[in-house]
Amino acid sequence: MPTTPSTLDRTTAAERRRALLRITRDVADDLAADALARDHAGRPPTDEVARLREAGLPASLTPPTPERGTDWRTGCAVVRRIASADSSIGEVLARHYVHAWSGRFHASRHHADALEEESVRAQWLWTGAFRGSAPDDDTDGRDLTLRPRDNGHVLNGCRFVDTAVAVADQIVVDARCAVTGDVLTVLIPPGARGVTVEPAHDRLGQRVVGAGEVILDRVTIPPGQVLGRRPDDEESTAPFTTLAEPALRLALSHVGLGIVEGALGEARDLSRGGRAYRLPGTDPDLFLTYGELASAAQTAGAVVDRATEVMARALDTGTRLDDEEAADVSALVATAETVTSKAALHITARVLELADAPGLDRFWRNARVLTAHHPAAHRLRSIGEHYLNGSHRAVAATFH
């Protein structure tokens, strides 16, 4: 009998992994078939999320246990493969997978287990948006504020959410309590009264991610939707909790690699099919160009794979992780993100010189939007300070 999502929970972890990767290939092939048309349309990913749920991917991409979920290495492989076919949906899955770890990063283990079990059962799609805790953060008065009440809190304000704002089942945010000053990590209940969504339109790239602003007007947050309190001081934050943001940046680096692999693969197919500016087999300069681009892609992949392995070990360590280990992981992730961003922008621009085909420009547009808000210079300074001085503060600041 063929393996389907409904039978994954009755198999071993290795069998689940193989089945998940087969399902991922099928979903990626399906998404690739109409990726260009959907990019042109730029609509919210309602249909795409339905495809993901039909394949069981939201339920599979949850933190691992012996009976369910997906380990970090496999989860990133799924994200990367989907992103090579459609980077918008790759980003939706990347953010879903990392935010599905929110219970483990911010809540008690009992609370996390309950959330993860319900997430698998109901095939929740997760997204989220965090401001971070930089002391000089300028909030313009429009950000999220909590006020205590007898049955929990009331949440007001607005926040831009990068993916799936109108179709997610759980939105994870941080918000400051107006009474105590505490910063709490909370889940916005699906379908809650007072939640309004304003989708972002006419984006340059990543047009199918479903980005937009969520506006919250006196939204009730029951106690079960509060995951935990985050210290204002980064140095007081538990080392394992500090992995939340670099884990997201690393998952998005896999999206960047997916863009690179998709761009190179499509350009290669055009060259082989005779739709390139120069024909393969007759132009040594063409071989040189592809050699340069393939080498850049493989270099970025090697750095990201190393960071993925180190992150996986850190996640397995859990609450036993210490400050130094967490800082080393974050520094390596910052390096991987820097290398991948540079490679993605370079490669996706160069492939436009190799072939003439509608839609080839989407890879550059997607890479540009994915990397636009995280300047390399900021990361490089923090990496350098960590390398010279072993500064934990510098690495933490990289991701805020």
Rank of each mutant, 00 (worst) to 15 (best):
Y97K: 04
E198F: 08
S60R: 13
L354Y: 00
H378D: 06
D30N: 09
R142M: 15
A334I: 11
P190R: 13
T348I: 03
G103W: 02
A77G: 10
R142Y: 12
H99D: 08
L248M: 14
D71E: 11
P199M: 04
R176H: 11
I259A: 04
R381A: 11
L250C: 08
R17G: 01
P63L: 05
A114F: 02
G132T: 13
S253P: 03
G141S: 13
D140Q: 13
F240W: 09
E117L: 10
L146G: 07
V186K: 03
H400Q: 15
L227Y: 03
A112E: 01
L321R: 02
G384L: 10
D138M: 15
T24E: 05
D138E: 14
L315D: 00
V303W: 00
A37G: 12
E67K: 13
D113L: 11
D232A: 13
E324T: 15
S133N: 15
A192P: 05
R68K: 11
C76F: 15
R25A: 10
A263G: 12
A357G: 05
V219I: 10
Q298K: 07
L204I: 11
I23H: 03
G210I: 01
A13N: 09
F105M: 05
A372M: 12
G90W: 09
Q206T: 11
V260K: 03
H201T: 13
L8Q: 01
L93Y: 08
K342M: 05
G191M: 09
E292H: 07
V303P: 00
R275N: 02
L352T: 08
A19R: 08
L227T: 06
